[in-house]
């Protein structure tokens, strides 16, 4: 589903200086996009705005035609659970829950996403684990904290993908991984997407990731001028 941003403006009331302005951004369904920028450039703020945790002062953020900026807090939380998957830099998982329980948590607050499942939850989790090169038999019941960092990030990817949310957001998801694990993570994450429907937006400072994505946008370009076409790599 298409992600569309128009004239988004946000400033932190308390911290005084920092503000963010995104004149325009459109990501069509099935697009994978890398947003490049150094830390402190407003990437996290932008992600929080897209996830609906921060509320824009002005402008419009629409996913699948629904304007998130109009939603109340509780409705936004429900919308996020249903339509958005999220992957952190690290420490994505609840350490004392098993791998399977962590993945299932992706559906805990999203009844519609759960309703979309076409097979039993157990089978779907096994399927995602296999697709993300996680041994469903050996690792499924392990507490998440026992897994390696690379494995943990792939579990996080599985959790973000389960139930096929319209938008998957990832905040520096490979920053804690070595090169081999980074490669594997993105290969499997992108392969796990529904290329007809889902939008993937990854925020990173690492330009080496660029070749994997349909679109690469620099943070300064995003905030300066209208980006509609974008540069395809």
């Amino acid at each position: 589903m298409t992600l569309q941003i128009d004239n988004l403006q946000f400033s932190y009331a308390s911290t005084g200086g920092f503000n963010l302005r995104v004149p325009s951004l459109t990501l069509e369904a099935g697009t994978t996009c890398l947003l490049l920028g150094p830390s402190g450039s407003g990437k996290s703020t932008f992600l929080s705005l897209l996830a609906g945790v921060l509320v824009a002062d002005h402008g419009r953020v629409a996913l699948a035609g629904q304007d998130m900026s109009q939603f109340s807090g509780a409705r936004m939380d429900r919308f996020r659970g249903t339509h958005i998957g999220f992957i952190y830099q690290t420490l994505n998982l609840i350490p004392w829950l098993s791998v399977r329980e962590n993945i299932a948590l992706g559906l805990a607050f999203a009844p519609q996403r759960r309703a979309r499942l076409k097979a039993s939850l157990g089978d779907i989790i096994s399927d995602f684990m296999t697709r993300l090169d996680l041994d469903a038999g050996a690792l499924g019941e392990q507490p998440a904290r026992l897994l390696s960092l690379g494995q943990q990030q792939r579990v996080a990817a599985a959790r973000a993908l389960v139930g096929a949310p319209d938008l998957v957001l990832a905040d520096e998801p490979s920053s804690a991984l070595d090169d081999a694990n980074t490669e594997k993570f993105f290969d499997l994450l992108i392969a796990g997407l529904d290329s007809q429907r889902q939008v993937l937006l990854v925020v990173s400072h690492d330009a080496r990731l660029a070749p994997r994505f349909d679109r690469v946008i620099k943070m300064e370009d995003l905030t300066k001028e209208p980006v509609t076409g974008g540069a395809r790599e």
Binding site: A74, T82, I94
Partner: peptide
């Protein structure tokens, strides 16, 4: 833990 649950769609009241 709470931030993760929030990202997964849990509201503060939940």
């Amino acid at each position: 833990e709470m931030a993760i649950l929030r990202a997964l769609g849990a509201s503060p009241s939940t």
